[in-house]
Simulated scan of single mutants.
Amino acid sequence: MNNEKLTLKGVCFGEILWDNLPTGRKLGGAPLNVAYHLNKLGIYTDMLTRIGEDQDGDDLVALCRELAVPVRLFQRDQQFPTSTVEVHFNEKGEVSYDIVFPVAWDYIALGEKEREAVRNADFFVFGSLSTRNDESYNTLQSLLKEATYRVLDVNLRAPFYSKERIFELLGYADLVKMNEEELAYIASWMGLPANQSDLQKTEQLMEGFRIEELIVTYGAAGATFHSHSGKFSYRFPAFKVDVKDTVGSGDSFLAAFLSQRCRQDPSASTEEMLEFAATLSAFVTESTGACPDYDANSIHRLQWKHFLNRGEVNLR
């Protein structure tokens, strides 16, 4: 995307798949989407996953190479197929998924190559969906002990989650990203009153699981960032865009925010990080599929387009 040379490295763990959209087959999987955008943003990020020994798997490898997503941690499975997902949209453009089980990424194996990659990474991104099968979950638990900075993307896809497993994952995380509905689910599991504000819920969630940073996305209403040690919360509104589909918009938001957060630029404010994340998310929402092509000029044009309409709300 640009000529900036970065020494940062990351690993994303979990599902990679073909999203069967009304417009055709698209590359997908939340951790893959995050890895794609991080690599586009100049941060070398491996994708640790498992695919079948089949044509769908061969096609995924070829496309990821074309998109400059590293494939050195792609495992091949002779028994289980490459994952495919049927994607459905309602009249509001909201998405639902029919996710096949079991598939190859339910059986991600652990070896020294995987341990070394995570051990040497600056951050490790993992999602809750990839833990639906014990074999991949056991691998993830071992890798979490090797990671230095752990980023959980809560991704509740019925029926592939449980309160107990989500609570376990929250206990590992340094940074968590979830959406408004997922916050409500977790708050109810914690026994928090339904009439509490989201700010009150996030404070108790972060305190209960010792989470340092939390992002809650609200779709067209923007996102909030909460810092436990900094003792502040910040809301940034979403940009108004012509929605084509919302597939991968939250993944791009996380990737863009993480790309700024991990640079640890002392001159970068929370507002600037969230603005950049909102910009990339808006671009993806205006595009088809989770991994559209773009360059620096595309994002900069969109930032200027919305500059005069940007705003901020301090929650505290």
Rank of each mutant, 00 (worst) to 15 (best):
F160C: 11
V69R: 01
F13K: 02
S269G: 06
D98K: 15
N120I: 03
E272I: 07
R115M: 11
Y149S: 13
F123L: 10
V247D: 02
L8N: 09
M178L: 13
P292K: 09
M190Y: 03
I51W: 04
L199E: 15
V69Q: 00
F13V: 09
V176S: 01
F239Y: 15
F236G: 02
L156K: 03
P266H: 06
K5H: 14
M47E: 11
A238V: 00
T224W: 05
L258R: 00
Q200V: 07
D54M: 03
Y44G: 13
H37C: 08
W189N: 06
N138C: 09
S287R: 04
R76S: 09
I166R: 00
A184V: 12
L63H: 01
A223S: 15
Y161L: 07
R150W: 01
C64M: 12
I43P: 00
P22Q: 06
N297A: 15
L140K: 05
F101V: 13
R76Q: 12
L110P: 05
A278I: 06
D251C: 08
W189F: 09
G208F: 10
G208Q: 13
R235E: 13
P31K: 02
V313G: 12
Q75L: 08
A158D: 13
V247F: 11
E114P: 02
A109M: 10
L170G: 00
L32P: 04
D106M: 05
G219A: 12
E135P: 07
F283H: 01
F124R: 02
G219R: 04
A220L: 13
T84Q: 15
P81C: 02
V247K: 08
G127W: 01
G208I: 03
G10F: 02
S197A: 11
L183G: 00
K113Y: 08
E146A: 12
H306W: 15
W304D: 10
K201P: 10
A68L: 11
F253Q: 01
C12R: 03
L17Q: 06
T82Q: 03
L32I: 09
A223E: 10
A290I: 06
T288F: 10
D106K: 02
S252D: 01
G171S: 07
K9T: 13
R115K: 13
W18S: 02
L8S: 10
A220K: 14
F123R: 01
E182F: 08
T139R: 00
S259F: 06
R150P: 01
Y172N: 08
H226K: 05
D265F: 04
A121V: 04
V34P: 04
E181A: 14
D106T: 06
L254D: 00
A109D: 11
L175S: 00
L140Q: 02
Q204M: 15
A194H: 14
D19I: 08
T285N: 08
G250Q: 09
D293H: 15
S287Y: 10
Q141K: 13
V151Y: 05
T84S: 15
S287H: 10
F236R: 09
